[in-house]
Design a protein around this nucleic acid. Structure first.
Lengths: 209, 209, 209, 209
DNA sequence: AATGAATGAGATTTCATTCAT
DNA sequence: AATGAATGAAATCTCATTCAT
């Protein structure tokens, strides 16, 4: 391993350290009430250092979403790549994958929405932006493909797979957001999961011919 | 019309003037990037005047949601109160109502989520807060009742009506949020509506036994 | 009584009504935290009306002091004008007068100091300012005269009477301020009065040859 | 000197720099009319920097008093600790100490009163507050002890030493406030000092049996 | 590379004062 | 004369970002 590479690896480790701290702090306080200083403290670094790894606060925030997307894609590829599964089984596996994503970072969705706010986007580097778009498209594509198999097999209604993927993702994120927003009254993770389960069930029933 | 009443009416007109301006500004820039001064300017008033009608920025923001909820409930009551409709027709009417709500204020959902953030809640008056909760519960109840009729009629699967209402609302808000968040790429209101339509269709199909 | 005079009297009644309200509000909250609106509300008038009777907030505040000074002078003249009292008895009567002043408005002193702040003075009309100065000089003169009688009678040490009056007044105000400032710990009016009594006692003892 | 220590020292220097600037500005304009921006400008710092060293405006203000109290106590301990002085000499030394305190910061007294206002107290940290209380009690105790020696020696009238200390302090602060408040007319520091001297003289005479 | 002190623009909110009615 | 809605200047405080060390 060359010196160059070791340095690069070291740099990546730092970035992750910051991202992990940021995730904790953002989860705790939301975007606006989280300060760069809080995050620096959580990462046991100085505020200035954060800016050596992320152009600004928005870009740091966006990186969280990127991380989720990467995780999501890995999980999805695991499903799409498994040729032994029937179309139906793939959809089931997809639902399981979504649960995993939720467990990986329950705030994923809120992150993703914040990310999309037009003001935020302005602050992102072209590079990060296109990376996010690429992964976003890729994951929706993967989800779409899963549905497509069912459509092609004649067991699902004939809708545009990407539109179905959009709806599927919307439902997933809608349930999480809505149930989370009610958390003041009911901070019950299991209730959220059971709602999520019921929602997926209805969705899948609705897909069937 | 007494002098008292005329004043009250005048005051209400002012409140609406501010709410309309706030809606425009918040829609444009989101909560955090909208300043009270922006809103004042939009309403052609001075910043100080806003505070004669709303205790603070959070309360002004929350009032937007209240307005939507009031509209939503009126539309829902119109549906539930119509005895001539079959359970199926009521669900169709419910879907229509949701479209109207969306047309009334496409940002309704984002408002409702911001509203729930615990930091925001702290700044609201007890009165406004309980009003919102009341209306919120009432509208979910009304939606639930519509589903209940279908369940009782034996045409829908047997799930708890309020849970169904939660999912229905989640899907509605999820689609709007997701499609809106993509608006940078595709600011096509019709596409959103068609997605919404497809989502409702799948949901309703999924409900059926 | 002519119409002119009746009007004048009516006007004066209003002024007093406002002053009384202002006294209550200022006492409650201090100068800075008292708003003109609070005072208007207390006086059951509108904010605008206050400005028909007082040029500005500072001038309203200053009028409180003027009222105290007027009361003080009446009480002092009562003492100096009583030829039946011995010099010693006059000093005793002076002390009694100060207690009365304190009872009339315990915040007198704080008022008087606020009054003197140079920034406040700038906002006062020439007229009000000279009136206050006149009364202030007059009352210190009266106090000085009481001491002078004792000095002339050979029972008090030979200091400039006005200087003694200054010290006497300083002590009076100092005790009130200091004990009031400790009120958070000990809000005991009787304790304040007993301290005031002890202070006067020492002062008078110190005067004696 | 370690790096830690050097930093600590640097930080303390900054604090003092701010305190000195604040003292100047507050002296000039009083608490309310002094803005944090004025103070920052005087200290040749930015407003934000002030908040790195003081939690808020009230706490900055209170720190001025703390500084005076510290100085006062040092001076008082110098007196009480000097066993070679007779009770009378100690009282004389006490008077000298008060002059020094006055020279150290003529606005000491105004500070101390503002400090006690209940609204101000709310904004102070528990820590600062208890420090001030401690020092305040300590200094009044020390003054009381000086008087106690005279009482025990049988040369002073038999009053509670702390009550005497209260009166002594009240007189001291009363004279300063009163004379300062007249400064618009007569900004003569020597006159103030001579009044202070005369006041102390009378007080001490009044103490004697 | 890392630090962290310092910056300073900017946001919310208050309130003395005005003025059309 | 009285009103009170509206004004808008001003003040405190926060925090993303920079830069000298």
């Amino acid at each position: 391993m060359g010196i160059q590479e070791r340095k690069e690896r070291e740099r990546e480790r730092r970035r992750q350290q910051i991202i992990v701290a940021a995730k904790r702090v953002f989860s705790e306080s939301g975007f606006n009430r989280s300060t760069m200083e809080d995050i620096a403290k959580e990462a046991e670094l100085s505020p200035g250092t954060l800016y050596l790894y992320f152009k600004n606060k928005d870009e740091l925030y966006a990186s969280l979403s990127l991380r989720i997307l990467q995780y999501l894609i890995i999980r999805l590829e695991h499903v799409t790549g498994n040729d032994e599964l029937s179309p139906q089984q793939k959809v089931d596996a997809l639902v399981d994958a979504m649960f995993d994503v939720y467990d990986f970072d329950p705030l994923v969705i809120i992150n993703m929405f914040h990310l999309q706010s037009s003001e935020t986007l302005k602050n992102l580097s072209e590079e990060l932006l296109s990376e996010i778009e690429k992964l976003s498209r890729k994951s929706l594509g993967a989800i779409g493909n899963i549905f497509k198999e069912g459509i092609d097999a004649g067991i699902y209604i004939d809708k545009h797979p990407i539109a179905l993927a959009d709806i599927f993702w919307s439902m997933f994120s809608g349930v999480i957001l809505w149930e989370t927003s009610k958390k003041i009254i009911n901070d019950d993770k299991d209730y959220l999961k059971s709602t999520l389960k019921a929602a997926f069930e209805i969705f899948v029933r609705g897909l069937k011919k």
